[in-house]
Design a protein around this nucleic acid. Sequence first.
DNA 1: CTACATGCAAATTGTTTGCTAATAA
DNA 2: TTATTAGCAAACAATTTGCATGTAG
Lengths: 139, 139
Amino acid sequence: MNELEQKCIDAGLKMTGQRRVILEVLGNADDHPSVETVYLRSREKDTSISIATVYRTLNLLDQMNLVKKHDFNENHARFEANLENHYHFIDVQSGEVVEFKDEKLEQRLRELARELGFELVDRRVELYGHKKQQGTDDD
Amino acid sequence: MNELEQKCIDAGLKMTGQRRVILEVLGNADDHPSVETVYLRSREKDTSISIATVYRTLNLLDQMNLVKKHDFNENHARFEANLENHYHFIDVQSGEVVEFKDEKLEQRLRELARELGFELVDRRVELYGHKKQQGTDDD
DNA sequence: CTACATGCAAATTGTTTGCTAATAA
DNA sequence: TTATTAGCAAACAATTTGCATGTAG
């Protein structure tokens, strides 16, 4: 059983077959799948899953802060189970999303929040651009 | 004639009455109006404007990089004519959006882009939180 | 004149929800 | 046993589009 599943059980959620599959898909993903993608990947393991359940589950997990919902300027949301603070480079040509962390940046953001008298509950840093050298592309 | 209007003419767009009104609304806005809001403000000056035209015009301006389209985790887009690099604090309680600039932050972002071999075409920094002290709220 | 822009209503897309049946605890 | 969850299809909300008409250049 993966980490997410344990957290859901701890939170008192009923562990249905569908949820188990969705949580496994999320736990295994190293990208930022859309609802549609989570749905398709889940279907490969259990054909009975409906997209309504995927929506409900992802929204539930997002509210519980067990996954993070993203909007990379597309017309659909994306999700990821990586909860550590990190940021994203989005290649505007290939759609590739690259994660990165940076302590200096993180520190400056906290500083700015303090200066402006804000209690920080979330942050979002996205850099859009394209690779300077030639490179492979995938997400 | 405002700056936006001039830029549109320079770009070879036909300057219709509807566009003139929409551009004026955008030029005067010091907030981040949604399509609906731009539509309503425009209607006050010209009842004949349809929301389809507002959508088409805003999308066009966005593509031409004359306005910036935002998504502050709501269910609709927002727009602003302020093209200078700046960032946003979003008060998750009141919905208030506060703009800020920061050279240190800007510099760090450029550095990171360079380190990762990215040509930067756009950036997005949003801090979500709430005011620590009591304050007024509006957008 | 003519290519571009508008209004209207219908279509699309991503997402949510009401309802009944199924099921985890 | 019973509150929670799932599936299905209908409902929604934001946005886009086809088409006939209008108009800036």
